[in-house]
Write a protein that binds this DNA or RNA. Structure first.
Lengths: 197, 197
DNA sequence: CTGCAAAACTAACACTTATTAGTGGGAAAC
DNA sequence: GTTTCCCACTAATAAGTGTTAGTTTTGCAG
């Protein structure tokens, strides 16, 4: 009788969530069945329910873990004593790195959160809104201090965040440039696009 | 007995595809059932099949119509006698305008194409790849002519295209700035980020 | 008014969906 | 050696999936 392999000293629930992240990214939440997931984990579908409560719960865990990571880093930056443009660059780099190294779950949190159900859905939506507002706040500070050119801050946030999510294409491309080079190029374009000149 | 309303002098198939675009964007392709779609059209699910061949066909129509529009405009720009940076700006503006006024279908083509099935899937993938390569080509010309700063062209393409898809957030936001202002802000940030200074 | 094609309907098909109940095996605790 | 508990199993459920067959209604052309 096969057992869920727990190579890295992670719980079996962790293994399920990791496999789910991969599948949700590849096929989307709705198009991924519990039987798909079970097969990838190496077990019957019903057995998954010894470790998780529902398909919905898996998505919740993925989304809120990611959200917490980003919120934590944002707060860290808000409290740091650097220029606005440097804060922004740090946050951008954090997003890029997360998207590179934590690809599956970050991408799922970004694209599949719509399939959350209330009350988690509305909770997630407000978290998302608050995050963007605070990010826009940093930009507005930078504009006041004339570090950043006069632009609509929410639009800048929108560009930043969505540009980063484009790293999915990088992951899929055959001849990719190195992760470091990718990061530098993205920072160069986006930060220079914002900087007051 | 209700009939599919065909207000604008469009065919009934058109009405179905438009409603489908709306639903596919809101809930995703997989999470939208033919019964959902039928209800929104105001008809029984089976009746849809008098106008379309399959659910898959709807997605195909949406994706390839959008793809053709963008490919056509790209070719127009490639043949125009302007600087590379101007070409790029025009294409960017076209993307923005399409995303603003043709929101539903453009967004679906961008996000839901994965659910196409072969041979349409591989066809779409190559079209997508070619489009990006040719866009990168324009950027590389701009770099050679020193109009554009030395960056990795594919990365710039990735940023441009994904930044534009962020307009979905703009559509959903409560207090939106005007479409014109949105366009100008996006062009300011992205084009300035690319321009050699 | 009649006839005909377009397009709506109902009913049903064959699967797939997430999830639950109940069973049994295997390993660790005593 | 026995008990206990974790966990994977089989079997089943009720609801939902895209789609087809066959029938009835609609609205327009003659």
């Amino acid at each position: 009788m096969p057992t869920i392999k727990t190579n890295r000293n992670s719980t079996k629930k962790e293994v399920i969530i990791n496999k789910a992240s991969k599948l949700f990214r590849e096929k989307g939440f709705s198009a991924t069945s519990m039987r798909d997931l079970a097969e990838n984990v190496g077990v019957e579908a019903a057995s998954l329910y010894n470790h998780i409560q529902s398909k919905a719960e898996i998505l919740q865990e993925i989304c809120f873990r990611v959200a917490n990571q980003f919120m934590t880093y944002l707060e860290e930056m808000e409290n740091s004593k650097t220029s606005s443009i440097t804060k922004l660059e740090s946050i951008l780099r954090f997003h890029i790195q997360q998207m590179i190294h934590n690809y599956e779950s970050v991408h799922v949190a970004d694209r599949e959160w719509k399939h959350l159900t209330d009350p988690y859905l509305s909770n997630y939506k407000t978290q998302r809104k608050v995050y963007r507002q605070r990010l826009a706040g940093i930009i507005e500070q930078g504009i006041q201090k004339k570090e950043i050119k006069k632009i609509d801050a929410p639009t800048a946030v929108l560009i930043m965040l969505h540009a980063v999510s484009g790293i999915e294409s990088w992951h899929r491309s055959k001849q990719k440039i190195s992760a470091e080079l990718l990061e530098e190029n993205m920072v160069m374009i986006l930060v220079d696009g914002l900087r007051a000149s």
